[in-house]
């Protein structure tokens, strides 16, 4: 069952991540962001993507990594979500890779905390481990009781 999957890869703090290619709308260089007061920390701001307003989520913060150095301009991986386009801010864009199911493994049990719910698992590439990102979870920032309850109800 070696169904090949295509992933768009990118880097965050030297770690390699991948999202399913089908979910990626486009990859953009840095765009100017408008900050949003009172917004959750992971939301970096809003940007104008050809007349469309897109929310930018800082993946470093979402994954609880160290903040990006100030002189480093993030790149945008714009993904399609149920709620319209969302941009994930990353350090650097990588290649598109094709992998099969056989290289996939669930995250190790020792991976704990918030990060675990965002990372579906890893693909063992030749020289790297590619973390597979759950884009829906990555876009979810307000995990309030209400939204949790709602999700609970929708799954049961």
């Amino acid at each position: 069952m070696a169904q090949p999957h295509q992933f768009c890869t990118f880097y965050l703090d030297k770690l390699m991540f991948g999202v399913e290619l089908q979910k990626v709308q486009e990859v953009m260089r840095h765009l100017e962001l408008t900050g949003i007061p009172l917004a959750p920390g992971v939301v970096s701001g809003l940007m104008n993507l050809r007349g469309q307003i897109v929310t930018a989520i800082d993946l470093r913060r979402r994954l609880e990594l160290a903040d990006r150095p100030e002189d480093m301009l993030p790149m945008n991986v714009v993904i399609r979500s149920a709620d319209g386009a969302v941009s994930l801010l990353v350090d650097e864009i990588g290649d598109v890779v094709e992998v099969g199911d056989e290289s996939f493994e669930r995250p190790p049990e020792t991976l704990q905390g918030k990060v675990r719910e965002v990372i579906l698992g890893v693909h063992k590439l030749d020289r790297h481990l590619m973390h597979v990102l759950d884009t829906d979870k990555a876009c979810e920032t307000v995990a309030t009781a209400t939204s949790m309850n709602r999700r609970l109800a929708s799954t049961t």
Binding site: T34, I36, P37, L38, N48, T55, I57, V142
Partner: peptide, 25 residues
Amino acid sequence: PLSKQLRGIKVFAGATIMGDGRVAL
């Protein structure tokens, strides 16, 4: 409209794109 990540912030009704192409709340 604001995306769902921001809908909890009551003080904003939405966003718009200004004449200079930047986004304002």
